[in-house]
Design a protein around this nucleic acid. Structure first.
Lengths: 117, 117
DNA sequence: ATATCATATGAACAATCATTCATATAAAGA
DNA sequence: TCTTTATATGAATGATTGTTCATATGATAT
């Protein structure tokens, strides 16, 4: 007999559901992963990441590259930095941004592969 | 001499900017990639993907698993399907959902790795 | 045929988000 | 010290999005 849970939904594979529920990553980890991917999910940030894949750049470079104003770029860089995807260092009046680790390029390449099919 | 482009931004590495601009993926590809990652960027969809990583399931199963109503799950499954991340087949009154290819699990694993550090 | 069940879909609403504008900070030069 | 330059940041706004509710579709069973 099929199980009817919340709001009358009918689960056909209750067994599997219980097993999955027991083995899946914590709610917190799942949220963090979604947060991470959300950061990749914007064209502006994707362009920034792609650029930094090639070379360290400062804010003005990126603004020129993206044809966007400095403020917009700066805001997005903050998002990227909060997600630990980029790091920054100050050199005089300029601030240089670079990718913070190797995961970034792996994830980006994976996305590119999926898209190019 | 530093270059001052749109809106007075100052580019320090004009050389690099030009090179990156010449070599980077098309605007369209960059948009598609962002769109792809956007789909991963939601906890509900991440949970669905993680579940389907383990086994094929139908809508009611997922609703039970996520403690969400059928409609919400169905809407998100549509998003996943439009992004070609899942496929579906009908068996009687039920519709079974499964991951559509291997990229998905690779991308998800990559995200998990990044988060678990 | 009709009732029921599983799923899909459209409209509405609240919440989130990217960009802009204006302004703040922090370094360098005069 | 005062100005200029590079970047950051807060508030406002328009656009996008996830969920809910109500309803539609499509299949089975009586």
């Amino acid at each position: 007999m099929k199980e009817h849970g919340i709001e009358g939904v009918c689960s056909v594979h209750e067994e599997a559901v219980r097993r999955i529920l027991a083995n899946r990553p914590s709610e917190e980890h799942l949220f963090e992963m979604a947060e991470l991917f959300k950061v990749f999910g914007d064209p502006t940030r994707m362009k920034i990441l792609y650029a930094l894949l090639e070379s360290e750049l400062c804010v003005g470079d990126l603004a020129l590259l993206l044809s966007m104003n400095q403020s917009a770029v700066s805001h997005q860089l903050k998002v990227l930095k909060d997600a630990s995807l980029v790091r920054s260092r100050r050199v005089g009046k300029n601030i240089y941004y670079a990718l913070s680790d190797g995961h970034v390029s792996t994830i980006v390449s994976m996305g590119m592969e999926h898209v190019c099919e």
